[in-house]
Write a protein that binds this DNA or RNA. Structure first.
Lengths: 215, 215, 215, 215
DNA sequence: CATGAATGAGCATTCATTCAT
DNA sequence: TATGAATGAATGCTCATTCAT
């Protein structure tokens, strides 16, 4: 027979209530963030306002300040979220293989998928709130790891004679720039519909791994 | 005796006056645009306002509406200006040689120099007001020509066996993305000081012409 | 055998519990008032808010309304407290001697000490919430007694030929005004540092008891 | 025959227009200040808001910022006005006689009349915005002159054996405090109706010149 | 006894825009 | 050609207060 849990009924009730409340709170928080990112995508960074977020979720403007300290905290939370989700996937891609070319390919693919799949987060992270990178590192340890992973992948690739040898940082930067440019064009440029963006991305991946010039 | 110009004195006076007026008008217009781009650079897209432009040039806010229909027209004019200046240089780079590799290199260099040298215009053109591309083409024929030049350069390069053969558009897009990414990182990312940006750019140029992988 | 107390155990338990509860309740109340007066001192009347009081004592804002009907009641309670503490001291000074001049001197000293020692209460009582005096007298009998004491002291002083004879009320008012003015300047005027305030106060006391003009 | 003014008709028209405009502008400015001081008297310093000022004068809130930089400038303008008007009268009283006792009496009367006649200005100057005194002296030379006049009058009075000899500053401070206290009570204390205030003021004047104790 | 969630009103301020002059 | 005056809407934010739990 299953042993009775040591908590009293009252405790469990309270816990249930607490849990339900916490969950509800979490839900509103999520709703805020979701509305924020939707609005941000719709009207751009400049056209995003606390008031509109509130209206979108059907609450009064003041309520946002119950969940977030101020507008920036909403935005930076999105950025944090972005870095956290992105960081995980990027790390998994990094660890998924030891083949240098394949690893670079996978990391690039993850990068592009993330950027194109979460354009609001991506824009905030890498275009609108790059001051995020100036904040104390302690708060968000993810943000630096990411670039390190790329550098190490590049280092490996050079070691395995997969990449043209050269300075580590500038090579990583260039790779990053290529991926970044693809995402930017894909999510911001009119004319870059899904198919054109996809074609560009595929071509970029090919070129990254095979080089631009004929072997 | 000095030959009489065919126009009457009155005509000339009127013309002079007209010219002077036009010139003055042009000067104010230029002042507006210059102030606008300075403010945009200083305080970002969001921090740019008609009022501040007016104050900066020492006029009242209303005057802007004599030269421009509204705020957007000011911004789009900056974009037009950007495309026009950029287009010229890009064209000159295109025409400066028939060597496909060298031509690509020169075009890339012009692109990067323009972006990093006119970050306000660049951001407006390629990041903040990409809805510019949705406007009727007739108004500004420059904006498309540019990409055509790149496509033709790529086509040539493939023909001369300088670039890995493949789809023209997606290859051009990828090149564009690489350059665009470099400019974006260089002008927006904290940590990308002059030297790091320069190193990245040089590396990118090398890789674009020599490929990523060892020959 | 120990004599049974007349109350039952249950009663005592209840009483204990009640007492403890009352005591706790009293403690929270006190904490609220203390925090309120601290905040008022720190940020001024305008900068004082229920929210900040709550935060300062580590409770939720709502709890204030369990102890006080509304914001005004918090403030008026502070005023009451002020009048109560002040009234006691003032009365003691009044009763401490029968010498009219000495009595006036002691009462004045107590007044000044209270005002300068409890500037938050003083400001509330005599500057910010003078509407307090419009409330029904029954609630707080202290507030009027105080002025009566001064009047009686003045009456005595005139009887003992210590003060220039004249109307009782206007003379008392004038004395009050002098003391009030000293406190006001001392606690509000930039430039009135401790030493200047002290010098003024001492001089005022001298002049009040010896007169302004040479004998 | 009166000589034609050298200005052309157009110039005069323009000037008229300019004058009329300036006058109108001045009128709105005055209306703002007047509304501000009325509201301030009605609802206290804390209850005074730009919005309400705008509503009171029948304009939109934004217009205030056309005439004043911000809320503080409105308030400080009132303070400046107060000091300017008060300073003049105080100076005139100072200069109106060489009899030391009479001079002190007149200065005191002017002080009291100003305070009770312009309670909004007075409160701002001496109770709510005493930070005014911390501003650079250059901006408002009046504010210091005032106290100097009092000191000099006191000095004279001591020299003429009209005031009990003693420290100049603390004696002036005490006199100031007395007058200040009278004004404070008169304009803020419920119960101080006109007659009581007047009686107090008269009594204070008597005591200031004749001393508190019987000769 | 205390909280957490929420509101609605208010605040100072800025802005793009208009229009009579 | 240019201004000066004005508006109305928007913004981020704070607050006193309420109430179900």
């Amino acid at each position: 027979m299953v042993k009775q849990p040591s908590s009293t009924r009252a405790e469990r009730l309270r816990d249930n209530s607490r849990n339900r409340r916490d969950q509800q709170k979490q839900e509103v928080r999520e709703a805020i963030l979701q509305a924020a990112s939707a609005l941000f995508l719709e009207h751009g960074y400049a056209g995003f306002s606390i008031r509109q977020v509130a209206e979108k979720i059907g609450y009064s403007p003041g309520i946002i300040y119950f969940y977030f300290a101020d507008k920036d905290e909403v935005l930076f939370t999105l950025v944090d979220e972005g870095f956290s989700r992105f960081g995980e996937r990027f790390l998994r891609a990094f660890e998924s293989t030891t083949d240098a070319r394949e690893r670079l390919l996978r990391m690039a693919r993850v990068y592009l998928e993330f950027g194109m799949g979460h354009p609001a987060h991506y824009q905030l992270m890498f275009m609108q709130r790059t001051d995020y990178f100036l904040r104390p590192v302690l708060e968000n340890p993810n943000k630096l790891r990411t670039f390190d992973l790329l550098t190490r992948a590049v280092e490996d690739a050079m070691g395995q004679n997969v990449l043209l040898p050269g300075d580590l940082v500038s090579t990583s930067d260039t790779l990053w720039a290529t991926l970044h440019g693809c995402v930017c064009l894909a999510i911001l440029m009119p004319g870059f519909d899904e198919s054109r963006a996809q074609a560009m991305v595929e071509r970029a991946l090919t070129l990254v791994t095979r080089g631009l010039h004929p072997g």
